[in-house]
Design a protein around this nucleic acid. Sequence first.
DNA 1: GGCGTGACGTGAA
DNA 2: GTTCACGCCACGC
Length: 119
Amino acid sequence: MTQSDAGFRERVLALVARIPSGRVMTYGQLATLAGAPGAARQAGFVLSGLAGGAAGDLPWQRVINAQGAVSTDRLGFGDLQRGLLAAEGVVFDTAGRCDLKRLQWWPDEEPAAQDSLFG
DNA sequence: GGCGTGACGTGAA
DNA sequence: GTTCACGCCACGC
């Protein structure tokens, strides 16, 4: 398995699928966890192929930029992403930004730890 | 083989 | 606090 491994895309998609409801991750975070720190742009490009319904059960909506705002606004469905997150309890500011510091999720965290976050 | 692209990130003004 | 510009790495042609 030293040929091409799972690939950067597969790892990013696997991480996105692990994001619990009501939580979000940043592109740089996905890239770093995928083994490519700095490839935040590429991480977003991977998700770009999912937009439109190809995402299946993949919660691509839970992936936002480091500013706590959605980057899909330039794609035309930024409101869609905000709506999906809002349905999960994610509140966006008037500027379209959320409390990333509180909503950012790491695969290292366990479901039980989320309970403390809401407290 | 190399070049350009891209749902970004960080630093600086 | 915001905004501009450059740099980053993986993928497609």
